[in-house]
Design a protein around this nucleic acid. Structure first.
Length: 428
RNA sequence: GCCGCCGUAGCUCAGCGUGGUAGAGCAGCUGGCUGUUAACCAGUUGGUCGUCGGUUCAAGUCCGACCGGCGGCGCCA
């Protein structure tokens, strides 16, 4: 019976095993051939000695190329010379599917563009696959978190006509002759759903047609979003703290090995993240000759510098309305400042979440849409929600790949995506 | 959208300043090696020098345009 490699590490010495996997590496020393097998659960060395291996199998072993898929039968042997002190002593080897010359070489790993041109193959690498597993850990933990708190997962459409963010960054498509767009956020649909379900969350892709060539932008990325009725901005920030803290803790518990492969020493933050107001950031910037105008978005350099002074995530609160989308509620005592916050990761990783309290009053929202000269007809249903008992409510969105980038300590967000979509890359 | 850098073998790069018949390492292939961990040793295959145009007796090298990628900014999440 076949065993997985992770299981083979738990079996006693001498166990007869059959392992199916791919040849991750090979080295030949005369009548002794080593192959490293990989099956998605782990790596194990298999050693074939002439005379011990059946002769036909030994010939196949000599010919086998990197990334061939094989079935190896042999016995577990404890041997300190083997990686992790254990290997399979090969008795026989079957070739399941042969492989051409493998293009991902030692020098190829130096070339970002080559690795992403060959992403369909380079994801087999130890580091690439570890990141994908960590990303799964992030999503899995988020599902656990919301599930424990009684949130309902909803799956809104990603083909939409109303834009949550600015219209300039929408991917337009022809929907049987009508204009439609790829969704930038599920937020509007969550707002509709909370009046049916109370508290909801979403895990699905979002699309932004921004030609942003930075280490933290993808044109297609996944968001974890949540929205809750009767929740104010204060409770909203606490919810984000709890979520991020939970995810970090769970990923560290479940993915020690993957983090080690990446050389990442990650300490999960304890709860209660610092809060900095927009005005304090402005002051921080002007003290360092990086000043910007009140009302503008915070420049990358300022955010990065601030982020490097922190050891855990922190909120930037009280953003000016001019730097925010139309639906944000403003403070009761200042209509120029929104009840919203960005959550910034430390070590210069930058923004990982944004949240805020939404306008729940019909007239206020109508005035806001009109004052920003937005196409009212596209927001008809969104506005209409405010005529049928819409309570105060808040929510937020976390970028899955940005969170993964921080936890895994990645230099670029594209490494957190299986097949990243960036302004210069839509294939493979 | 703006600024900068780069396109030469499957990969990483040298060659370009001062124009004159294309180089190295890695990978592959062949042979050797019974404990490799980025193995080692010997041999060897492999080229539309991104594309188009210009200058010149002659262009990988000089000039122009374009295309592609990377890094950063802006915009944004």
């Amino acid at each position: 019976m076949g065993v997985e490699i992770s299981e083979a590490f738990r079996l006693p010495e001498g166990s007869l095993v059959k392992i199916r996997g791919w040849v991750a590496s090979k080295s030949e020393i005369g009548g002794l051939i080593f192959i490293t097998l990989r099956d998605g659960t782990g790596y194990i060395q298999a050693a074939g000695k002439r005379g011990v291996v059946e002769e036909e199998s030994f010939q196949r072993l000599k010919e086998v190329a990197k990334e061939t898929s094989v079935e190896v039968e042999g016995t577990i042997r404890i041997d300190r010379r083997a990686p992790k002190g254990r290997e399979v002593a090969i008795k026989s080897l079957k070739i399941i599917a042969s492989a051409d010359k493998w293009p991902i070489t030692k020098s190829a790993v130096k070339s970002t563009s080559f690795l992403y041109d060959y992403r369909h193959l380079s994801i087999r690498g130890r580091k690439a696959s570890s990141v994908i597993k960590i990303r799964w850990g992030v999503i899995k933990a988020a599902i656990e978190f919301f599930s424990q708190r009684g949130y309902c997962l909803i799956s809104p459409p990603t083909i939409v006509q109303s834009a949550c963010e600015g219209g300039a960054t929408l991917f337009e498509l022809d929907y049987f002759g009508q204009k439609a767009y790829l969704s930038q956020s599920a937020q509007f649909y969550e707002e509709a759903a909370i009046c049916a379900l109370g508290k909801v969350f979403v895990i699905q892709p979002a699309f932004r047609a921004e030609k942003s060539k930075t280490p933290k932008h993808l044109t297609e990325f996944w968001m974890i979003e949540a929205e809750k009725a009767f929740m104010d901005q204060e409770e909203n920030m606490r919810l984000q703290e709890d979520l991020i803290t939970y995810i970090c803790k769970r990923v560290v518990e479940d993915h020690k090995e993957e983090l080690a492969v990446l050389g990442r020493e990650f300490k999960p933050p304890d709860t209660s993240f610092p809060r900095v107001t927009y005005d304090e950031v402005l002051k921080f910037a002007s003290e360092r000759n990086l000043s910007f105008k009140w009302g503008e978005d915070i420049p990358t350099a300022v955010e990065a510098l601030l982020s490097k002074t922190q050891s855990k995530p922190f909120f930037i609160t009280d953003y000016p309305l001019s730097a925010r989308s139309f639906y944000h509620m403003t403070k009761p005592d200042n209509e120029n400042i929104t009840l919203s916050a960005d959550l910034i990761a430390p070590e210069g990783h930058g923004e990982i979440a944004t949240g805020g309290q939404r306008i729940h009053d019909y007239q206020t929202l109508l005035k806001r849409i009109e004052s920003q000269e937005m196409p009212k007809e596209n927001f008809r249903w969104y506005l209409e929600l405010r005529r049928y008992g819409m309570p105060p409510h808040s929510g937020f969105g976390v970028g899955v790949e940005r969170l993964t980038k921080w936890i895994a300590g990645l230099r670029h967000i594209r490494a957190a995506s299986l097949f990243p979509r960036t302004p210069t890359r839509v294939n493979p």
